[in-house]
């Protein structure tokens, strides 16, 4: 089984360091894809997102998703890091790194991991308004379910 690295952490992560860690000492990798998701300010109305998670299950579920992606797309390695706590606009929320001999599997694997992570990893976002108000919980989007469901055809 290719190495899968999963971390759920309050602190920020370093994209370049994670790519180096994933490919260090290897000469068989031909493609590395990184996806990072950032906090938007929603046209200036949002001051922060607060991410709640289910400790234990969050790591377990992301690991299950990454292992499925490794298996399905024959990835050579996969890393997924998800932050929790209060995150300001412009800051990182999530990172996915995938490696494969050729680019398509790495692209598809990263896409697959993100689609399942958004709908199955136990995280919830609450909005904090730029005016100091505590906004509501972000609602799940139907298009995220559709994005996940397209993989059932493969």
């Amino acid at each position: 089984m290719a190495p899968v690295t999963v971390r759920v952490q309050r602190d920020d992560f370093d994209l370049a360091a994670e790519v180096r860690a994933l490919s260090a000492g290897r000469h068989d990798i031909g493609a590395v894809v990184t996806f990072s998701g950032l906090c938007r300010d929603e046209a200036g109305t949002l001051s922060a997102l607060e991410l709640e998670h289910y400790p234990g299950m969050a790591e377990a579920e992301i690991t299950r998703i990454c292992e499925e992606a490794v298996d399905h797309f024959a990835l050579q390695a996969a890393t997924a890091i998800h932050r929790y706590g209060k995150i300001a606009p412009g800051e990182n929320i999530v990172l996915v790194v995938t490696a494969s001999p050729h680019r398509q599997a790495a692209f598809d694997g990263a896409n697959f991991i993100m689609d399942f992570l958004k709908t199955a990893a136990p995280f919830w976002k609450k909005e904090h308004g730029a005016d100091g108000s505590e906004g509501g919980w972000v609602s799940a989007k139907d298009e995220d379910d559709s994005a996940r469901d397209r993989w059932s055809k493969i």
Partner: peptide, 10 residues
């Protein structure tokens, strides 16, 4: 047993 709303991570 955990109960929670639809997830909104990522």
């Amino acid at each position: 047993i955990a109960l929670f709303p639809p997830m909104t991570g990522g």
